[in-house]
């Protein structure tokens, strides 16, 4: 009886493998939403105070389009909001690989470094670039630059 119990899992795995091997190919189930739609749905969930659902949507967006910078930055924001600055930093860095001049990613990476209390020279350079890019969030980027400079003093 014990032997059968121990062998149950490998047997199930083998059965599954045999089942999949028998299929000519896997069936990909339809995802009715595009990457941009998943991202925007994530923003709606985030605004509605549902971070877990928002995270699921940002991940779905990135699964459909790994280069969707907006979703990558938004996912980083969720990590940052939970105080997980290191994963947040990873998201912002990855976003900057795809879009080196994305002002939000530059600013938020600077904030992530500032909150971790390290690489402040890099944080200042990032915040300076964010300010230089300007845009509607100029005041946010300036505030970051100001705090980074104060932290470096």
């Amino acid at each position: 009886m014990t032997g059968w119990r121990a062998a149950r899992r490998p047997a199930a795995a083998l059965a599954l493998l045999a089942l999949f091997a028998g299929c000519s190919r896997f069936v990909i189930l339809n995802d009715p939403l595009t990457a941009a739609e998943h991202n925007d749905l994530g923003v709606a969930y985030e605004a509605g105070g549902k971070p877990e659902l928002a995270k699921r949507e940002y991940r779905a967006a990135l699964k459909r389009d790994p280069h969707l910078v907006r979703a990558r930055v938004n996912l980083g924001n969720l990590e940052a909001a939970a105080g997980r600055w290191q994963p947040a930093e990873g998201c912002y860095r990855r976003a900057l690989r795809d879009a080196p001049n994305d002002a939000d990613a530059l600013n938020n990476l600077a904030v992530a470094l500032l909150r971790q209390g390290r690489s402040l020279a890099e944080a200042e350079s990032l915040a300076t670039r964010a300010v230089a890019s300007g845009g509607e969030r100029d005041s946010v980027y300036r505030a970051t630059l100001s705090e980074v400079r104060a932290a470096r003093r």
Partner: peptide, 17 residues
Amino acid sequence: PALAGLASSRVTGATAI
């Protein structure tokens, strides 16, 4: 100094969701 803040999450602007 003003407090640094994250640039909040944004929509893509490509959809009406």
